[in-house]
Amino acid sequence: CGGGTVSRDAPLDSLSAEEIYQRAELELEKEDEEEAARYFSEVERLYPYSDWAKRALIMQAFAYHRDRDYESARSAAQRYLDFYPMEEDAAYAQYLLALSYYDQIDDVGRDQGLTFQALQALRAVIENYPDSEYARSAVLKFDLAFDHLAAKEMEIGRYYLKRKHYPAAINRFRVVVEEFQTTTHTPEALHRLVEAYLSLGLEDEARTAGAILGYNYRSTEWYQDSYALLTGRGLTLEAAGDNWLTTVYRQVIRGEWL
């Protein structure tokens, strides 16, 4: 099955930069991003001073990104930024760099080291290239990544709340309320604080948390839950449909363990 690729290893030195570039674009249309990236890197290696090399470098980063090869996409984008910081594609290179972290963010339960790096790279896009067309979507992605970091704190807070380690849960939810107020998780964090303070018997702290929730997020379902808890008409355990088998199904099969 290696027949088709024999020509690929033929020395490309004989071809001009433009021909290799076109061959790379052809590969891109054929959805073979990895092959396209390889051609683009050849253009850069053989004709480093041509104008083609500059365009090939940014296309190389784009191709690697599409091929989910985030490592090489990052190094190609970084090389572009080192050589051509002032070119019009520099904003796109910085944006690609941020995307390479952002697209690897997985759902909340997993590694959050990437979220942090994504935030820093996105901030670079917003600050260095404020008027480029990528700044706007970078701001949007920045908020999403920031929200994601808050979701991680909430996940750990719920872990401790479920296991009735209330002080640990309280500290995690307070981090969300104090450092992540702009995210969508603040109302839930406030409600969880009401739950945790009540479980410890700290009625007045629960009431202050409920008041803040009511003042800022009166229309949310979280506020209704807190209101019910604080006024004593909280929902009972059976009402929540909590018999033994549904718990097993929910926790073991579906993985929702709350």
Binding site: D111, G113, E155, I156, Y160, H165, R172, W257
Partner: peptide
């Protein structure tokens, strides 16, 4: 906890007998 690409956070966290605080 960092670096857990596939493993969920709680699977590692529950190995700790120590709780935050």
């Amino acid at each position: 906890i960092e670096g857990n690409q596939t493993t969920l956070d709680r699977v590692i966290r529950r190995q700790f007998r120590t709780v935050e605080g």
